[in-house]
Every structure is written in structure tokens, then in C-alpha cells.
Write a protein that binds this DNA or RNA. Sequence first.
DNA 1: GAAGTATCGTTTCAGGTGAAACGAAGGTCA
DNA 2: TGACCTTCGTTTCACCTGAAACGATACTTC
Lengths: 172, 172
Amino acid sequence: MDESSGAAPRRRGERPEDCEAGPSGFSLAGFLPYRLSVATNRISRAFARRYSQRFGLSIAEWRVLAVLGSFAPLSSNEICERTAMDKAKVSRAVALLTGKGLVDRAAHPSDQRLLRLSLSAQGQATFEAVVPIAQRLEAELLEGLSAEERALLERCLDHLDGAVRRLETGGT
Amino acid sequence: MDESSGAAPRRRGERPEDCEAGPSGFSLAGFLPYRLSVATNRISRAFARRYSQRFGLSIAEWRVLAVLGSFAPLSSNEICERTAMDKAKVSRAVALLTGKGLVDRAAHPSDQRLLRLSLSAQGQATFEAVVPIAQRLEAELLEGLSAEERALLERCLDHLDGAVRRLETGGT
DNA sequence: GAAGTATCGTTTCAGGTGAAACGAAGGTCA
DNA sequence: TGACCTTCGTTTCACCTGAAACGATACTTC
């Protein structure tokens, strides 16, 4: 998470000056990475507020819960891949979840380095309780967008994801 | 910034299991807040890598530079509004930028509580050097999307922004 | 099987984070 | 004026973060 709190942020065009770009021709308010960042952080906070209150879960914990709810058993490393979190973050989230009794950890039978993580009964129950909240929030965010628009948004996200991945691996 | 590093994250549908949602009917890989977060963090990192190397700027510093480049002079509070960062973060970024000689700070003539922040000549030069990098990155991200798709992406971001703002202010 | 290398998950470390406390300045009202 | 409240920007505090170091396990090569 990145962004802010008490600010009273503006939408593009909400104030006259925001439409203008200044002498440089650059406008932060219209800059895609900036806009994505603001929207994303605001959404993450809104979502976290809903389930962290009720269930005492951080975003990282919820993500681990979510992938384990769908794909258990997984190793720590597999959770990294599926959640796009780094291994330290996953390790901490898993430690918290096992501490709360939501996740069971066992050793992999043939490779002692790997963990075999899965949801406990309580973890499964928590997961199933959070899912509808997640889905309702998503529905509320998308409300007002047509099916075509939603599909295109999906496509745009795929596109951005692919583009930035290419930038990362490719040259500067 | 939030997400991870060494992971080898997957796009939706890249692996067969990712298309399936598990017994719960929930798939993290298709969950909008999650997808936004991953794409955003990856983009932020890619962008930061480009200018932080060359100019020694953090994302927060770049944002302050960007708004001052377009709208100086501004108070600290106005920067908060325009960048959607909280006041502590802005305060720290401004302190760093003034330390580097990129930002000039003066007292507001009629209200001593307010700062009057603007770019120094060096700050202006840095800003003008970073702008093309920012614009090129944005262009690379959007490459392959038609004008209609870009416009719709804009609209979707506006929509999401408005929706989550309503959630924040409205009920849970 | 011994030596060297790779991978797994944890922990450490230095630095970044927002919420809240804070002092300073301004405003309000009697 | 003086008491009180608000607003501005800074600083403190407890926490979170990723990069790197780490010990443990597994694999590879000879």
C-alpha cells in the first residue's frame, strides 16, 4: 500500500486547473501509472477495511487464504507465484495464519525443504465467509459498467500486465 | 509499493488451473482488486527503476516534482490534495527535495503556517528531464491499445475511482 | 560419498509507512 | 485582551517492507 489518507483527492477535470497540463505539457492527473496507483490503493484500503475489521486479516493474509482456499495444498513458493508476493511477505503471512489456527503446515513427504500448507477447518470457514464480501465489493466497483466495458477492462489489464512484464525482462 | 520481486507470476489463463476457480467459485487470479494491485505495483517499480537510477528520486519525490512543475507555487497541503499522498509523506519528500536543492521553500506572505513551495532552476531542469521518460513509459504501456480502448480504460479508471470514493464516504 | 551448487523458507537489517501527538500560527467570540 | 478552537506542517512511534544473509535440505558432478 502506498497512498494516503486524509487527502481530498480530485478527479480529473473536477477542478479547472486539473485539465490543464502546465507549461511542460505534462499532467500528473492524467498520467496512467499515477492514476492506477491512486485507484488501486484506494480500493485496497476499502477492501481491507471490510474484512480486516471483521476477521483480523491483513491483505497479505487474505491473499494467502484465498489461494489456499482454491488450490491447497501449496508450498510457500507456490503461494509466492500465485499471489505475486515476495517470499518474506508470504512467510510472515503464513506464520500469522498458522498462529491463528487458520492454516495447517506439514512437511512435504519427499522433500523436507518444502512446506505443505492447507486451510484448517477454521481457515476454510473464514475463507468462505470472506469470499462473498470480496465478491460484493467487486460487484459494487463494477456496478455501472456494461459487460463489454468489463471485458475490455480485463483486456486492458492483461495488456498492461504483459507490457510491463516485457519492459521488466527486456531492456530499460 | 506492495508486491513482490522474485516471483514468476502468471497471467490469467497461462496455466490451466488458473482458469478454474476452485470449489468455492472464487479465483484470486480474476479478482479485480488483486489484478489492479499486481499490475500497478509492477508498473510503479518499472517506472521507478528508470528515473530513480538516473535522478535519485523516489516515487513520492517524483510526484511532488511533477505537481510543482505544473502548478507551483503550492503549499504542502495542496500537494497532498494533488498527489493523493498523506501529509507526512509529502513533508518527507519535500524535505528531501529541498535538501537536494530541487525545491525552494518560502513562507506564505499572509499566512505564516503555509509553505510556498516551488521548483528551483535545478528542480525545473530535473522535472523537464524526467517528463519524457514518464511519457515514453506510458506510451510503451499503452502501445497496442487502440484509441478507443485507451479512452475506455480512462473511463473505467474514472468509474472505479468514483465507485470506491462512494464506498469510502458512504456505508461499509 | 565428498564437494560444490541450487533451492526452500526464515530471519535480520535498514529504511519506509500512516496514525497520532505535537508546536506554531490563525481564527472566533465574548 | 484572553480563552478556545482550527489548520498547517513536522516529528514520533510502532509497524511493515524488500533485499540480503542465513541454516537446512536436496541435487549434481566427479
